[in-house]
Structure formats: structure tokens, C-alpha cells
Amino acid sequence: MRKPITNRTPAWVNKFPWYAVYIIGLLPAMWVFYMAFSNQLGGNPVRTLEHTLGIWALRFIIIGLMVTPLRKLAGINLLRFRRAFGLIAFYYAALHFSVYAVLDQGLAMDRIINDIIKRPYIIAGMVAFVILIALAMTSNSFSIKKLGGKGWSRLHKLVYLAAASAALHFVLSVKSWPNEPLIYAGIIAVLLGYRLVDPIKKRMSHSAALS
């Protein structure tokens, strides 16, 4: 059996109000919209706004995926904030998609639909977004009761697919292989890889204990 995890969560983290996570998490959005509306985003403000919101969605997906390894490997428990992390990621994804649809494509539905059915990077982005919508809609206590703890957990494992799709969306949206999308994809690959390795390790230590 593995050693039980010592709780090393700092006291201030335990006392940190959950609503403050939303406020801090949405500060970058407020900042970039302020910059956009005050004409300070340079020559291509639509793309900069779109890109910044997308990056923050990806960052909060990553933060959400770090909760479990942080608890299991470092004993720091942020479970209390995980719903906020996930919902903030969803808010950023929704803003990112809205800017794409409204400001970038000017709500030209033929173009948007064409993109969604034809362009792999947009398909990947949409897969991630649709999953985040489903997870956001079932992020309340009522849904947990309705779906049952097991069923709810299983549904919310879809976040792994959302994370992989979001990373792919970023990598496929650029020319050549610049570092930034690859770094995000690498971080997500490590965090998803952990989910693969952890149960194997658990099983191995379990069978070792039995023999």
C-alpha cells in the first residue's frame, strides 16, 4: 500500500474565500476587454483579444487538471476551488468563441458553419467547447445528486478530452511549430499522462501488497 498523503495545504489556502477565485480568475478578461475597447491592442485587436481569451481558457483547464496531482503528490488540497477553476475555464472559452463568432466573423453564419464542419483546428476547439458547456451545466450540487457521485465523476472525466482537444486546437491554428502552443500541449500531455500512470502504479503497489 502507498503511504497516506500528508496534508500540507497552507492554512491561508484553506481560509481563502472561493468567490475570490472567480474575481481573480476573471481579472485578465476584464483587463483585455478594457485594452480592446480603449484601442490598445495594436493592429489586429480582434485576433489579440480572441487569442488572449483562448490562452486563459487553456490555462484554467490546466489549473483544474493540476488539482489532483497536487493533492496526491504534494499534499496540497485545492479541491474546494476546482469547480471555480473549471467554470472560469468555461467562461473564457465562451468569451473566446463569442469574439470569434461576433467580432472576427461578424456573425456570418455560412462562414462559421463552414469553419466548424471543415477546419480541423476549429473542430478541435468546438469539441473542447461543447464538453466545457456540458461540464459547466452539470457543475452544480443538484447534478451531482441527480447523476450520482460515480456517474458524475465519469461524465466529468470528459475534461481530459476537452484539454487534449484544446491543446490540439492551439497547435493546429498556427504556422509551423512555434514554442508556445507546444509548451501548452506538453503540459497537458504530462497532466493527462499522470492519469494513465497513476492507476497502474496503484494496481502494482496493491498487488505487491497482496503477494
Binding site: 493592429g43 485587436p45 483579444l49 472576427d104 462562414r111 477546419r119 480541423p120 491554428s173
Partner: peptide, 19 residues
Amino acid sequence: PRWSQATEQVIGGGLFSAR
């Protein structure tokens, strides 16, 4: 292969300029 070339964003057009 990955994006449309039918339209273009006009640089310097601002936040609300149409493609």
C-alpha cells in the same frame, strides 16, 4: 488546408471592422 482564404482582417481597422 487549415483555414479559409476567402476573407481578410484589415489591420488597423479596429475592434469592429468587418472582414
